[in-house]
Computed example of a mutant assay.
Amino acid sequence: MRRRPPRRTCCGTSGIPELRIFLTFFPIFPKTSVEILDWQTEFALRTPEALPFVSVHVHDGDPLPIVREALENRHFVGLKLHPYAQRLELSHPLLEPVYQYLEDTGAIFFVHTGYDAFYGRSGITPDLEQILQRHPKLITVAAHMLYPEIPKAFDWLERFPNLYLDGTGAVASADEDGLGETLYPLMERYADRVLYGSDYAMAIESVGASWKRFQEMPISDEAQKRIAWETPLELLKRRNWPFCGDLPARYRDVAYDKPKFKIGCPKSDGAGTGSPYRPGGRAHSAPINPWPVSPGRARSGPPGYTPPSPDNPLVKDERRRH
């Protein structure tokens, strides 16, 4: 007798839990924000597990139009910044409207914290503290738990009710540095505010080793379940991300549902009309470029986009640091 194939649902094969990953790719070179936004969109459309976060570069002018394009028209989950790798100051005035926009819309703000000695830089912790004070409703995830300032990170959970911690790298570092006895009870107590993270592909250890280390932590099964599954789901629900049953909707299903891509979006090749990111259409393999490009000129960017100039204060700050 032939085996009946498994029933398909909008969330994948029924009976098999479907993985979700936060795609937090960020530009580290000037004038690449739009190119990376295109790449992230294309990657998330063809990778069912990926839920994308936009990022911006300090030399790409006013960041707000790019963030709004990603969240309003491409339906990204939120924003990711890595102040040290991207060489930006979280406290810079040009970023303040972005934080206000994220707070107003309920989008998630993922930010690198800690490891100052590794990067040879400082300033994230006091800057982030001021941002959280100014924007108490901003849903924020502090990656790496301010490492090695773990107690301070968990103290912040009492002060800032919309703050979450991502244990990426911090668990392995705590084990190596003898801070595990401090970390484990805190993760048990605050499991509803902590997320598991792998930091692939820039992690301290492989995804498999990281997951094994997490499973062997001396915390309860209930706490592990919350950190690895329930807390991230709750975070997405707070973001008002669509769900299919008990699972977050795939990015491409959200894009299919709400086709609002701007000028220049390729036409449908299938039975559908308009955007190719809807039932009946076929997503093209070419990178998406929703903004027109004049012959012989660089990509212009979204409406309201301000190209970098020598007078851009972010550029000036960057030059002073070097």
Rank of each mutant, 00 (worst) to 15 (best):
G280W: 09
M217T: 08
E181I: 03
P242G: 05
G281W: 05
A271E: 12
K258F: 05
K225L: 15
L235Y: 02
L183A: 03
K212G: 11
L179Q: 13
S173N: 08
P242F: 04
A249T: 06
D246P: 01
G296S: 11
A228D: 01
Q224T: 07
E181M: 04
S173R: 10
K212S: 13
K212V: 12
L233G: 03
P276R: 03
G281Y: 06
A191Q: 03
A209T: 14
V207G: 02
D199N: 13
P248F: 00
Y184N: 01
K212Q: 14
D221C: 04
K225N: 14
W291T: 09
W291C: 07
M187T: 06
S220L: 04
S268K: 08
I288R: 12
D192T: 11
F243G: 04
S285G: 08
S275Q: 09
S198R: 10
W211E: 04
A223I: 05
G208S: 09
A203P: 01
D221I: 07
S210G: 13
G272P: 09
K237I: 01
R226M: 12
E216K: 04
R297F: 03
E230Q: 10
M217W: 06
G264E: 15
K260G: 01
E216H: 12
R282N: 03
G180A: 05
R226D: 07
I204G: 14
A249S: 13
R252Y: 12
D257F: 15
N289M: 14
A228S: 08
R189S: 00
D253A: 14
S285W: 12
P290D: 10
Y190K: 02
M202C: 09
G296V: 06
A203C: 03
W211H: 08
R297E: 02
V194I: 13
Y196A: 01
A174H: 09
R189A: 03
S275D: 07
